[in-house]
Design a binder for these strands. Structure first.
Lengths: 110, 110, 110, 110
DNA sequence: GCTCAAAAGTGCAGCC
DNA sequence: GGCTGCACTTTTGAGC
């Protein structure tokens, strides 16, 4: 059974087939452009993400500089996040039980 | 209603001491405001960060929807990142050499 | 996949090249035996672990066969685990605050 | 104050009802016992599983303490596992062929 | 530098 | 049988 090899969308010369078996629905050049576009978008976002992460670190550093214990601060953040998550979880549980009881919860019907 | 949060300030407010052993350099109330400010800033940033992360996932999903193998795509991103990191590393080494030679690299303007 | 540059050979032993560049501080044969021993122990444990995992799956399957909704069942397990974790967490928080207050919790006084 | 745990049984009538809408084919009390039994079995197994996992971590730690690079060690384990899986796969294919030829492979005793 | 915890990535099981 | 969501593993980053 075949598996791994097909994934590389490898630029094998498929130019001459009526229909390509490759995972992209287009000619190679176009697919490449498409790929490049995705790569750029992702890299751009990753960059932004890193900026944010660095900002967060800066805030912790600033807090520390103001005499706060970062470990405690992190715990505070973590706890508040947990609370939020738990709230969501509660709704999920409710939905689950409603489903189990045959009473569909949401499914925004209508 | 406060729940877990209340524990956070539980330690505080246990009377005035000539000198506080608390890690904050201010009166409790003020420190609390300060703390709150830090917490809010961090949470805001964490939220933004999550938005970006979700965006990234969306892009991967879109790429997948366009026939790209996300695993390969991730590999591409990863490799390019490594390359970039190595490039930076090279520049850092160059800077070190320049410094060692007394030629400050100053700021690397494009 | 690992590329050649990875740290496979990296690590200890830098500097001495008369004998070996390998990361182990012993003669090859002995180190190999040692390595083999670790590999075997790990593989044995992994095997046991898999057995347990399969057992768990079996129990879920059996529960399902008895009319239980496995999704709900999993949720029940998950919730109970969360409760246990939270209990631990509470102790951790307490310790943290005690530390922050300069009251080391470390001593286990009765 | 309700704790999270209480929600679990919240849905079920803590008393005895003559009739149930629940997906279990038995009276509530009995189903509850049954459920409890499953929960306990699973939790017991999960516990064992965690013990094994911790043991594995310990072995890796010990290996590290003996100068082995855990990353490499993990790679070794992983590769060997792959090999084993592939071997199994080969046998499975062989079995298929044997079956196709009307020669049941029966049980593969080690 | 090592250890530990959070985040990401991968694989798997259940569902449509 | 493809897909979505979940659990496990791995990796990265922070703290001591």
């Amino acid at each position: 059974m075949l598996t791994a090899k097909s994934k590389l969308e490898g630029g094998a010369g498929n130019g001459r087939r009526e229909k390509t078996e490759f995972p992209m629905s287009d000619v190679n050049g176009v697919a490449q452009d498409h790929l490049r576009s995705f790569v750029e978008r992702i890299e751009r976002l990753e960059e932004e993400k890193k900026t944010i992460s660095d900002d967060i670190k800066d805030v912790y550093a600033e807090a520390k500089g103001n005499g706060f214990d970062t470990k405690v601060l992190r715990k505070v953040i973590s706890l508040r996040k947990q609370d939020a998550d738990e709230r969501q979880e509660q709704e999920a549980i409710l939905d689950l039980y409603l489903q189990a009881l045959g009473m569909a919860p949401s499914m925004s019907e209508g």
